[in-house]
Nucleic acid binder design. Structure first.
Lengths: 189, 189
DNA sequence: TCATAGGTAAACAGACCTGTTTACTTCGAG
DNA sequence: CTCGAAGTAAACAGGTCTGTTTACCTATGA
């Protein structure tokens, strides 16, 4: 229970985040969330009039931007795979909340689907910006490919929580980066 | 309805496959499956005593091996990405049924989870065997990486049904294959 | 002091879920 | 012809889900 923590609205969101992520959106009822938040159902429905609103709030809160950094672009990209590896090793990893939401929600018009699309695109643009700094030939295409590797690690690690997948993805990313940079160098010569 | 088709057992499985895949395992009730199969609920429960049995049967039926082929290994690997691209372009693509099942089923001891792990490993071994024929340096590691690309395409295409992801993955696979083969050639020299 | 905003607990409505049961039908093999 | 296997339709049991409602409590600021 989060009774000691801040305001009811935040306790509800924290409880929803925990339960939705750990057990799945469809697997968790609002009763359970209210109980976990130490809040009456009435209050929960005051803050979030429907479960769908709560789902949207859950994903919106998960929609984090990556803190910009002055570290070398290549380093930042590879470090991201290491972060994933750590999350998987931690044991509490349950896949990408956005992808999971798309899987669990049938209705393509649900706000969650648009959020998932935006999130993935935002991540792709993060790669793109870094790759532009590296002056690779086709930053857009390579950004998509790195994103695919990340997505692959997330799905694979959900099925089988083996940190080896993240390491393999990191190695593959290195190969792709090297190839893109070599091509550019070759072009320069 | 599949009333005209073969035996009740098969009609039930066909209906379950369609509904589970299109709408999700948790989203579909046994009543709906029985109706879709043109079969009474009593009959459904004669063939599959619990919904979990039906889920397991659904995934078991989806557990296909790839037909062995004498085509060049590289060609076979790249063709697989093209198959996925076609599936995505078709519009009915809803992600990998095994990954979806893991997402939707909370219980890690459910038969479906073991099936999912086996399926992914079986696919990985398929790559491994092909890569051994190509005599790349570390077929096991590269098999994992190609598998990651595939998994990434499946997840990405679920969120956003853009066939471009499959094409990007194919291109990335080519780079990885070329790098692995070049390394081997370099070693030969 | 006391009105009110915001909270609690608990019951309820109505829908849907899994799984069982009952009573009836159909059809093919001996 | 008749018996039994396998099917149907439909109701039911017991549970859970979302969302609403009722009646009560409590703290705070005018």
């Amino acid at each position: 229970m989060y009774k000691s923590a801040a305001r009811p609205g935040e306790r509800i969101l924290a409880a929803a985040d925990k339960l939705f992520y750990e057990q799945g959106i469809r697997a968790v009822g609002v009763d359970t969330i209210a109980a976990e938040a130490g809040v009456s159902k009435r209050t929960l429905y005051n803050y979030y009039p429907t479960k769908d609103d709560l789902i949207a709030a859950y994903l919106t809160a998960r929609f984090k931007h990556i803190a910009p950094s002055d570290a070398p672009a290549r380093e930042q990209i590879l470090a991201y795979f290491e972060r994933i590896e750590a999350m998987v090793a931690d044991g509490s990893f349950r896949g990408c909340p956005f992808v999971n939401a798309v899987t669990e929600i049938g209705d393509r018009k649900h706000a969650a689907i648009a959020l998932a699309v935006q999130f993935k695109e935002q991540r792709r643009q993060w790669y793109r910006a870094l790759l532009e700094r590296l002056q690779v030939k086709d930053p857009d295409a390579l950004a998509t490919q790195l994103q695919l590797l990340v997505e692959g690690v997330l799905a694979t690690s959900l099925v089988r929580g083996d940190p080896g997948a993240a390491r393999a993805a990191r190695a593959a990313a290195e190969v792709l980066l090297d190839a893109a940079i070599a091509r550019k160098a070759r072009r320069k010569r």
